[in-house]
């Protein structure tokens, strides 16, 4: 591992979340996720961008990988095997879906090498084999024929057909399919088919409110509580404009970005302008309105 250059390399199915991700639950989503995981019921996360869907999955992958009782001092030596893998840890395979994604992109394909062809498993196949969580982000973006291949994985069968190899894979016990989806209203062509969506337990995500969001911002951006509160307030105010000129409100993510810039010494109003205002809209009028809100909140 070339540690000096600062990056780490993992095989897809070996990537595990080692450090506890910061996550503040909205309601009982942790319990539900845990229950679903135990019962092997796939999960659909709904909600606008930047509401913490991905973070939640990361958090759950970490959390489920933790032993039920943690024995503090011994934990490290007991849980790590020879390869440095944490035993019981659950791999997290994340796939960002896009329009041109094909079934092969998920399942796997042959690659050419000197000796001819070599089969390489796609991320989904790897997750199925490794018994990890496979997270298909923005699943609506994927073509409909692609989404169909996940169907047998999501019901009682829990199988994946790899037709090129003529194989059927039965998912390892730890495998769970999690998909996320942003019900962008007004675009009828990008809706999830019912045959697909009714295979999941759905968890709705929305922006955290007030204090909770402030806490998140304070933690993620490393700003003081006061700035975080103001940023959270800004977020709340901007979200009031949803459907009145804004398609989506300011995500917690952009607020965190603003917070980070502020922490670096950028004046708050400017930081909000570049990370929030200009980020969420191109409409000059709306930008101006949001700037006014910013300047009312930030000194």
């Amino acid at each position: 591992m070339p540690a000096e250059t600062g990056f780490q390399e993992f095989r897809v199915e070996e990537y595990i979340v080692k450090k506890e991700p910061f996550y503040i639950p909205l309601t009982d989503e942790i319990d539900i996720f845990q229950a679903s995981y135990r019962q092997k019921v796939p999960i659909l996360l709904k909600g606008p961008t930047g509401t913490g869907k991905t973070r939640f999955v990361e958090y759950m992958a970490w959390r489920l990988g933790q032993p039920l009782t943690v024995i503090k001092s011994k934990s490290k030596s007991q849980q790590s095997d020879a390869d440095g893998h944490v035993s019981g840890a659950i791999p997290l395979v994340t796939v960002a879906c896009h329009e041109d994604m094909t079934a092969s992109d998920l399942i796997g394909r042959y690659l050419l090498d000197i000796n001819g062809t070599r089969w390489i498993d796609g991320p989904l196949t790897r997750a199925v084999k490794a018994g990890g969580i496979c997270y298909l982000d923005e699943v609506v973006e994927a073509r409909k024929d692609t989404t169909v291949i996940i169907h047998p994985l999501t019901d009682h069968r829990r199988i994946l057909t790899v037709d090129k190899l003529g194989q059927v894979l039965e998912a390892a016990p730890g495998f769970l399919l999690v998909v996320s989806y942003n019900p962008g209203y007004q675009n009828a062509l990008k809706d999830l088919k019912h045959s697909t969506r009714q295979r999941f337990v759905a968890l709705e995500f929305d922006f955290p409110t007030g204090e909770r969001e402030a806490k998140i911002i304070a933690h993620e951006a490393g700003v003081d509580a006061e700035t975080a509160t103001l940023l959270a307030k800004l977020g709340e105010k901007i979200r009031n404009l949803r459907e009145h000129g804004l398609d989506e409100g300011a995500s917690t993510r952009v607020l965190i970005y603003a917070g980070r810039l502020i922490k670096e010494g950028i004046p708050p109003r400017r930081a909000c302008q570049v990370s929030v205002t200009w980020g969420i809209t191109d409409d000059a009028h709306v930008q101006r309105s949001i700037d006014e809100v910013v300047s009312s909140i930030f000194p």
Partner: peptide, 15 residues
Amino acid sequence: KDILRMYCRALAGRD
């Protein structure tokens, strides 16, 4: 007017 309307909506959280 448009700017103020959006501003007011943002603050009030109502239409």
